[in-house]
Simulated assay, not measured.
Amino acid sequence: MAEREVVRAKTGYGGDWTPAHMDAVLRTGTARRGLWLDTSAQSPAETVDAIVAGMGEALVT
């Protein structure tokens, strides 16, 4: 997210909100429900494989 933000013509964050801050808030302030994946280094096929492999964890009841 930080790398992408550097090369963008516009910014999606204002004031004290930086990509690092948003990442920290999401990681510490969001309930861990469902399947959480970091797909930044995965191909689309690898992402699909990870989703299929984590289907049990992905179900929220």
Score class of each variant (00 low, 15 high):
25 V>M: 13
12 G>E: 08
25 V>I: 14
51 I>F: 05
35 L>Q: 01
30 T>P: 03
59 L>S: 04
50 A>C: 12
57 E>S: 09
30 T>N: 06
24 A>Y: 07
12 G>P: 01
60 V>L: 01
12 G>N: 11
14 G>R: 10
53 A>N: 03
58 A>N: 03
55 M>Q: 14
53 A>E: 04
22 M>C: 07
32 R>M: 06
12 G>C: 03
9 A>C: 04
11 T>W: 03
61 T>I: 10
31 A>I: 09
31 A>E: 15
9 A>L: 12
50 A>W: 09
52 V>Y: 10
37 L>R: 04
51 I>R: 04
21 H>F: 08
39 T>H: 03
14 G>L: 09
61 T>R: 14
46 E>G: 07
56 G>T: 14
8 R>F: 10
42 Q>T: 09
34 G>C: 02
25 V>Y: 14
43 S>M: 06
44 P>R: 09
22 M>L: 13
45 A>H: 05
7 V>R: 13
20 A>I: 03
24 A>G: 02
21 H>W: 07
13 Y>A: 08
22 M>Q: 10
34 G>M: 05
49 D>A: 15
37 L>M: 09
10 K>Q: 07
59 L>Y: 11
12 G>R: 12
58 A>F: 00
51 I>E: 02
14 G>A: 10
56 G>A: 15
28 T>G: 05
22 M>I: 08
58 A>I: 00
8 R>K: 14
40 S>Q: 06
59 L>G: 01
17 W>E: 12
32 R>W: 04
15 G>Y: 10
6 V>D: 04
2 A>Q: 14
56 G>K: 13
11 T>P: 03
61 T>D: 15
34 G>K: 04
24 A>E: 12
36 W>Y: 06
23 D>T: 14
11 T>C: 02
10 K>V: 10
55 M>V: 13
18 T>K: 11
40 S>L: 08
50 A>I: 11
47 T>P: 06
29 G>L: 07
1 M>F: 12
23 D>S: 12
9 A>Y: 05
50 A>T: 11
9 A>S: 09
13 Y>H: 12
49 D>K: 11
44 P>G: 08
33 R>E: 13
38 D>K: 08
60 V>F: 00
53 A>Q: 05
41 A>T: 10
10 K>Y: 06
20 A>V: 07
17 W>S: 08
45 A>L: 11
